[in-house]
Each structure stands twice: as structure tokens, then as C-alpha cells.
Design a binder for these strands. Structure first.
Length: 825
RNA sequence: GCCGGGGUGGCGGAAUUGGCAUACGCGCGACACUUAAAAUGUCGUGCCCAUUUGGGCUUGCGGGUUCGAGUCCCGCCCUCGGCACCA
């Protein structure tokens, strides 16, 4: 009788008592670091979807351990940040208390599933011993000039009264409360991740990551090669005196990837936030802007626009011409109008563009709407894109026309030639922006800098770390744009570390992502108070060999962590240039109704309930069997019973007196074991190695189906089966392992190996085809030669019948696969 | 729009990368056990023709390459994910 409720707690207790999964500080050559993205301990607890990734890494870690690797498989808590803080606010408790309670709950849930975490390495990002080092890394960044203060136009949620990073916004609305986001200027600390853009991009090549995630990162970094070109802004002086020389007022730089189209630039556009616009408006004299009021109104109107509005306006472009000035096309000398329009973004490039309507779709739409000039300067190659005159712009490559001395040149070559002629500078531009690092929040790591009237921004001396979060009455945002920490005078007011004068602490805290940028290092050395991580331990364990988590972290956590890691590599704190060599994305488990699991839909399923009813092993086997690991998939109670039934049959198989493996004795065993056995060992081994857990379970089910047909099963067979089962269903495996009389934990047993040669020589049934159609089957050795195969095939009556109709032109024979007779006709 | 995955029975999916399509599981049907139900077990289960041996068709649609295509190539359709007024 298989009762998981009895055996599972028993084995969990024994693993713990005998410290079965404690990891050495420094492993030998065969090490494997298997890491889960650690959770936010939210108040809702874990649901069955969260644990899917954890089950997979646990199966993998157990498998690697049995293969003789020393495996590091830790777990911890990413407990700072909005989820924890919001929970605390909503439930009127201190975040720390909430976090402690939630961690206890999470841990209890996890422990029921039979994971092999080494809890002696548990970490918590909100522990001052931990965030001391988060702050320390920040100080190194600061000292290296990679953290700077600047007035940033930040995204502001008017309801929460707090700033939001790009990452906190969904469709122009606050990720938390759904309020449309506004712009607000705030003094912020910013990390210069753009210094690492090129390396973050290039090193993607060497990573064994899903292509989709690498592609997301490439898009996020958004590298493009182009040139910076200077345009002069001239006043139009006087309409009555057209002979008068226009006066040069300013110079503006534009970024373009299409310098070859410079002769087709028929107007220039500045972003509304471009500093030059304000400067020109201020020149209110003779040569100034003539329609100041209109322009100011446009800027005001677009300034109120949220990202949401800008997206909604994508089709209908708006703008206003700066009357009274023109720009000079540096190539043709032509004077072209200057416009202000919000389809040009201040945050990318230089905030100014040369508009080439003939060869850019957005410029084309804008030019059409406002009746601006459209001049073709690149003619499509006649061969590559024939006839068809364009209704819109042509954005491809081609041959230059209407471009003076450059006529006839290939556009690819002209990019450089024209840029050179006008004194342009080749430039690589990135979409990636520097990382706004300040949050006006209580529940985060205090940023360890001090503001001094004399000395400016001064780093807290390293020996004063950690800068601990003070106790505070209220941890809601203040609404002034300051963090709640600003209200605690005795904490805020300090002496300047440099001049000793009166100074104030930085009251903003770090974003949620900070603690998770380096946690994988802390697991190696969780108690260290003297250094970030011991160098020997770091060298021995890093890099992380297998990292598993949700694809939603493709461009945030995974880029930030790589950035910090590369910085630490440059500072010789770590020995590898990348933290995670292999990455797997876990697919969501949806509710039984096909919707995302959420309290809102009432479709959340707690793993505790499944464990109680069906057992942890059934939960594990089901979640691994339900489909490809990276696929999203709805939960199905109906399918879960398949896993339960399988385990019950396994238990029956290896405990039933009818099979009596434990009593069968060694004499019952064939020396090498059966063919199915070897094939199954191979299939399960490869399945787990490649994270194709579903096919591994299927292989075990097939073998069980075979075994159930046999009258006798040997001890040896049982021992192999139980070991293959152990990563998936460790509790039942331990129970059966003990029952067949094996010593020690099956979790510590050696993973079975298979004999490739045996498989190659085995007899196989292959199809016999005539003209590619299956007409019969023959059974012969997998490595039998063609003559043998042909002879056997000819003996089949059905084959004979078809062969009699014509003569055989030739025979295709693939040993072990098929044989095909090709006829003359 | 661009980039990246996918599209195989009633459902989740498998197919050693060009070699028996539909493994394994769920569901469904019949039978056995049972007073009965549940549980369990046995057999069946892509579609069409045939009483059977057997034959034809079938991997989103249309072409192509090949002795042979779910897999490769060309052109479409649909779908999921990421990015998006990025100059």
C-alpha cells in the first residue's frame, strides 16, 4: 500500500537528520552550481506554478549529485522591494515582521516537496549582514565613477506619489495601481550601465541561453552604428530683405544611421525637451522665434503627455514649426525648416533628427501631414526591387541620386563618404539607458552616500557599512517625492565624512533589483563579514552552471546582474566575466481555467493541498510530465492522477510478493540487464540532462509497462529503476531502495550507466519499404549488413508481391532504421 | 511593423535532427471484479474502404527538393512571447 503521507515526512526528516545535502565549502573538479531565481516572499505564499522551476532544478541537482558532482543548490529570499512593502502597508505590519512571517510560510511549503536545498546557506537580502555588501558594491561603483547624481525626468505615479523606473511601468501605467504615469523632475542616483553596453551585447554570444532571451537582451541594448552630424541653426533675419545674410545662432547635433540620405534631409526636428528649444525661445530679440506662444503651448501640451498618450498618438503625428529660424543642410547648403515634434524622443540619440521623408516612414508621415518637402536620394537597385513606385518611403539600400558628387554611389559606401565630407563623427548609439537607482521608498537598502554642502556627494566610509535602515513610524511614501527616511532627523543628520561639517544622508533607497544582482555569490560564503566573497570559494564554485527562472526576467534582472558581475570582474572580485553559463526558462502553470493563476480569478492552487492529497512525489512527477518545461500549461487535476497511478504501480511493482525482487537473489539477474533497461537508462539520462523531463518520465512509464508483463523482475533491475526514479520521486525511491535491501540513501547512490555497444548490437525491427511505402517489417541486428537485410526483406510475401511488378533499380539501407527498394518505373 | 518561438488525435504531448508519424499520459468505449458505485485490472481508441490478410489518406494552407519530409527550401495563413515613433 502506497501512502505518501506516511513515507514522505519520514524521509524528509532523515535527510535532514543525516545532513544529506550539505555542500562542501570548496568542491573538487566535478562541481555543479544549480540555481533558482529566488522568490519574493509575498503574503500569498507559493502556488503550484512557482514550484515548477524549483522541482526542475531539484530533479537536475539530484541527478547531477548521483552522477558524482558536488552540487551547490541553495535557496534564499529576495525580500526587499515593492511586493514586500505593499504587503506590509496593506496589512499594517512592519515590513520586517511581514517578511519573517512570509519566509517561514514559504519555507514550510518548500520543505514539504522534498527539495535538496542546503539551508545552512540560506540568505535574505534584507539582512543587514547581507545588504552591507550590496551597499559595498554600490560604493565601488560610485568610486569608479559609475554612479552619478543627476536631475532626471522620471516617471511619476501621481497616486502612489512615487517615482517609477521604466521597469515598473506597464503600457504607460503604474505597474502597481494602474494610474497613468506622469513626468517629474527629481534628483536621482543613476548607474552608468551604458558603459558596459558593448560587452553586455558581445558576451551574449558565448552564453548557452535560450535564443529568445538573448534576442530580448539584444533589442533592449539596441546597438546601432551611425554618425553624428552638425547642423547650423540660422535666423531668417528679415523677410523683406532677402539679400541680407542669415545669422548663425546655434549648432545642433543629430544622430543618424543613414548619413547617405543627408541630401534628402528636408527639415530638422527637435524633441520638445531639447535644451536648444528653450534657448531659442529665450532669444526673444530681433532674430528670435516668431511664434513663441505656439511653441510654448505645444511643449506644455506634450509635456503633460504620458507614454500612454504618446503611444496612442503614434499614427497621428503632431508638431510645430519654429518660425524665424532655419537649419542649414551641411551637405547641400540648403536652408530647411526646423520643427519641434514629440515623435522625436529626448531619451534616444541626441534628441534631434534630420528628417528624410523619402527614406523614413515616420518622417514621411509627418512631411505629408504638414506639407514638407520629400526628395528621393536613394534609388532602389533595379534588380532587387523592380517597378513599383512607392506610395510611401523607401527605407532600403540602393544607389544615390540627387546627391551632387555622390550620385551613383552605393548607399552603403555613401554612409561614410558623406559623413566624412561634412565633418561628421562615426558613433555607436544604444537604446539602453542608464539605470535610475533611487527609489522614494522605505523598504530597500539605504544608498550609502552623504550630501554635504561643501563636499557634494560623499561616499559613506566602508568601515561604517552597513548603513542600517532605521525604525520608522510610517513607511508609506511621503508624497513629497522623498522617502519616509527623510522624516527621521536623527538618522538623516550626520557629519560629513570628508570635512566634518553638517551633512545629510541620502534618503532614497535602492531598487528591488539591487539585492538580486549578486546573491548567487553570497550563497558561496553566506557568513562572510570581511569580504564580499572568499576568493577560493568563488573560484571553486563560479560560474553558475544552471540557472532557472521565469522569462519575465529576460531584460531586467538578467541584464542588471550581468552588469554588476562584469563590474566585479573588472575589480577582480570574481573570476568569470559572466555569472550564468546556462539558463533555462520555466513556463507558467496556468489555472485550470487557462488563465494566469491569480487571487482575482480564484484559480490559485496551493502545493500544500496537492501534497496532502496526492503526495509530493506525485506533484513532482506531474509537473515534470505535463509538457515541455518552457511551455505554459494549464493545471489539470485529471492529468495529475496519471502521475499518482504511475507511482502506485511502481510501489506495487517493487513491493509485491509476486515479483519479489528483494527475495529473488542474485542468481535471477542476467549479467548485463535487459535491453529495455539500457535503453531506459539512456533516455532518462539524456532527458534530465537536456531539461526534457517529460520524456524521461515517459521512458520510465514505458519500462514499467514492460516489467509488468514479465513474470520475474530481478533485484538488479529494481535497483536500476529505483535510481532512475529517484530524482523525480525521491521519497518513494528511498522507501523502495530500503525495501530491496540497499544501503544508504538512494539520493547518494551512483547513477546507472548504459552500454552503448549493447544497444548498437541489439535486434531491432525495421520497416521494409517499396517505393517509400511500408510493406512489411523484418527483425535483425541493428548493425546487420545490407545483404542480410535484403535477403530477409525478400522473404516477406507482401514485399515479394510488390517487387515482382518491376525490377529493383537500387536499395537504400540505413542500418537500424529502414530498408527501401526503389523500382524502375 | 521588427525580432524570436510555435501550429501533430477529443486534450497535454512524442518522434534519436531527413528514415515505421501519433510513443507516454489524460479522456473516452467495451469487458472483468462488485449487490452497487468508486477504486483497480484487461482490451480497444487518427480518418476512410474492406468480413479478414490488406489498401488508401493524414503533422495549419499551397508549391518544391529527395528513394524517403512533421523535420530541409520558397510563398501564404494563424498563434504565443519580446521590443517598438530608436532616427
Amino acid at each position: 500500500m502506497y501512502t505518501p503521507q506516511d513515507i514522505e515526512p519520514k524521509w524528509q526528516r532523515r535527510w535532514e537528520e543525516e545532513r544529506a545535502f550539505v555542500t562542501p565549502d570548496i568542491p573538487g573538479d566535478k562541481k555543479h552550481y544549480v540555481l533558482d531565481m529566488f522568490p519574493y516572499p509575498s503574503g500569498d505564499g507559493l502556488h503550484v506554478g512557482h514550484v515548477k522551476g524549483y522541482i526542475a532544478t531539484d530533479v537536475y541537482a539530484r541527478f547531477k549529485r548521483m552522477q558524482g558532482f558536488e552540487v551547490l543548490h541553495p535557496m534564499g529570499w529576495d525580500a526587499f522591494g515593492l511586493p514586500a512593502e505593499n504587503y506590509a502597508i496593506a496589512n499594517k505590519v512592519h515590513p520586517r515582521a511581514a517578511v519573517e512571517k512570509n519566509i517561514a510560510r514559504f519555507k514550510e511549503q518548500l520543505n514539504k516537496i522534498g527539495f535538496t536545498y542546503d539551508w545552512s546557506r540560506e540568505i535574505n537580502t534584507t539582512d543587514p549582514h547581507y545588504y552591507k555588501w550590496t551597499q559595498w558594491i554600490f560604493l565601488q561603483l560610485f568610486k569608479a565613477g559609475l554612479a552619478y547624481e543627476s536631475d532626471e525626468l522620471i516617471n511619476w505615479c501621481p497616486k502612489d506619489k512615487t517615482g517609477l523606473a521604466n521597469e515598473d511601468i506597464e503600457n504607460g501605467r503604474c505597474e502597481r495601481c494602474g494610474t497613468p504615469v506622469e513626468k517629474k523632475k527629481l534628483r536621482q542616483l543613476v548607474l552608468k550601465i551604458t558603459d558596459y553596453a558593448d560587452r553586455l551585447l558581445k558576451d551574449l554570444e558565448e552564453l548557452n541561453w535560450p535564443e529568445s532571451i538573448k534576442e530580448s537582451q539584444r533589442n533592449w541594448i539596441g546597438r546601432s552604428e551611425g554618425s553624428l552630424l552638425k547642423f547650423e541653426i540660422l535666423s531668417t533675419k528679415s523677410e523683406t530683405n532677402s539679400h541680407a545674410q542669415n545669422q548663425k545662432l546655434k549648432t545642433v547635433e543629430v544622430f543618424t544611421t543613414r548619413a547617405d540620405t543627408l541630401f534628402g534631409a528636408t527639415y530638422l526636428v527637435l524633441a520638445p525637451e531639447h535644451p536648444l528649444v528653450a534657448e531659442l525661445l529665450a532669444e526673444n530679440l530681433e532674430f528670435g522665434i516668431k511664434n513663441i506662444a505656439d511653441v510654448a503651448e505645444y511643449i506644455r501640451a506634450t509635456g503633460h503627455k504620458t507614454d500612454l498618450d504618446r503611444q496612442a498618438d503614434e499614427k497621428e503625428k503632431t508638431g510645430v514649426q519654429l518660425q524665424g529660424v532655419v537649419a542649414m543642410n551641411p551637405a547641400s547648403g540648403e536652408e530647411i525648416p526646423v520643427w519641434v515634434a514629440d515623435y522625436v524622443l529626448m531619451s534616444y540619440g541626441t534628441g534631434a533628427i534630420m528628417a528624410v521623408p523619402a527614406h523614413d516612414e515616420r518622417d514621411f508621415a509627418f512631411a505629408q501631414k504638414f506639407g514638407l518637402g520629400i526628395r528621393e536620394v536613394v534609388s532602389p537597385h533595379p534588380l532587387s526591387s523592380p517597378e513599383e513606385k512607392r506610395e510611401s518611403s523607401y527605407t532600403g539600400e540602393g544607389v544615390l541620386v540627387n546627391s551632387g558628387e555622390f550620385d551613383g554611389m552605393e548607399s552603403v559606401e555613401a554612409k561614410q563618404a558623406i559623413a566624412e565630407k561634412v565633418g561628421g563623427e562615426l558613433k555607436v548609439m544604444y537604446k539602453l539607458r542608464d539605470w535610475v537607482f533611487s527609489r522614494q521608498r522605505y523598504w530597500g537598502e539605504p544608498i550609502p552616500v552623504i550630501h554635504c554642502a561643501q563636499c557634494g556627494v560623499v561616499p559613506v566610509p566602508e568601515e561604517d557599512l552597513p548603513v542600517e535602515l532605521p525604525e520608522v513610524e510610517q513607511y508609506e511614501p511621503t508624497g513629497t517625492g522623498e522617502s519616509p527616511l527623510a522624516a527621521i532627523a536623527e538618522w538623516v543628520n550626520v557629519a560629513c565624512p570628508q570635512c566634518g561639517g553638517a551633512a545629510k544622508r541620502e534618503t532614497n533607497t535602492m531598487p528591488q533589483w539591487a539585492g538580486s544582482c549578486w546573491y548567487y555569490l553570497r550563497y558561496l560564503d553566506p557568513q562572510n563579514n570581511a569580504a564580499l566573497v572568499d576568493a577560493d570559494k568563488e573560484r571553486a564554485w563560479m560560474p553558475v552552471d544552471m540557472y532557472v527562472g521565469g522569462a519575465e526576467h529576460a531584460t531586467r534582472h538578467l541584464i542588471y546582474a550581468r552588469f554588476w558581475h562584469k563590474f566585479l570582474f573588472d575589480r577582480r572580485q570574481v573570476s568569470t566575466s559572466e555569472p550564468f553559463t546556462q539558463l533555462k526558462s520555466v513556463g507558467l502553470i496556468l489555472g485550470a481555467d487557462g488563465r494566469k493563476m491569480s487571487k482575482r480569478w480564484g484559480n490559485v492552487l496551493n502545493p500544500d493541498d496537492v501534497v496532502e492529497k496526492h503526495g509530493a512525489d506525485a506533484l513532482r512527477v506531474y509537473e515534470m510530465f505535463m509538457g515541455p518545461f518552457e511551455n505554459a500549461m494549464p493545471w489539470s487535476d485529471e492529468s495529475l492522477v496519471g502521475a499518482s497511478r504511475f507511482l502506485r504501480r511502481v510501489a506495487q511493482m517493487f513491493t509485491s510478493p509476486a515479483y519479489a525482487p528483494a527475495r529473488g537473489g542474485a542468481s535471477a539477474g542476467k549479467p548485463h540487464g535487459s535491453l529495455v533497461m539500457h535503453r531506459t537508462v539512456k533516455r532518462v539520462t539524456e532527458a534530465i540532462d537536456q531539461f526534457r523531463f517529460n520524456t524521461g518520465v515517459a521512458a520510465l512509464m514505458e519500462w514499467l509497462n514492460e516489467l509488468e508483463k514479465q513474470t520475474e523482475v530481478t533485484v538488479e533491475t529494481a535497483r536500476v529503476f529505483i535510481r532512475l526514479l529517484a530524482p523525480y520521486a525521491p521519497h518513494l525511491a528511498e522507501e523502495l531502495w530500503a525495501q530491496v535491501g540497499s544501503k544508504g540513501f538512494v539520493s547518494a547512490a551512483v547513477w546507472p550507466v548504459y552500454d552503448e555497444k549493447l544497444l548498437a548490437q541489439a535486434e531491432v525491427t525495421v520497416p521494409v519499404q517499396v517505393q517509400g511505402k511500408v510493406r512489411g517489417q523484418i527483425t535483425l541486428a541493428a548493425d546487420a549488413d545490407q545483404a542480410t537485410a535484403e535477403t530477409a526483406a525478400h522473404e516477406l510475401p507482401n514485399v515479394k508481391k510488390y517487387l515482382a511488378e518491376s525490377t529493383v533499380r537500387h536499395v537504400v539501407y540505413v542500418p537500424g532504421r529502414m530498408i527501401n527498394f526503389v523500382l524502375d518505373i
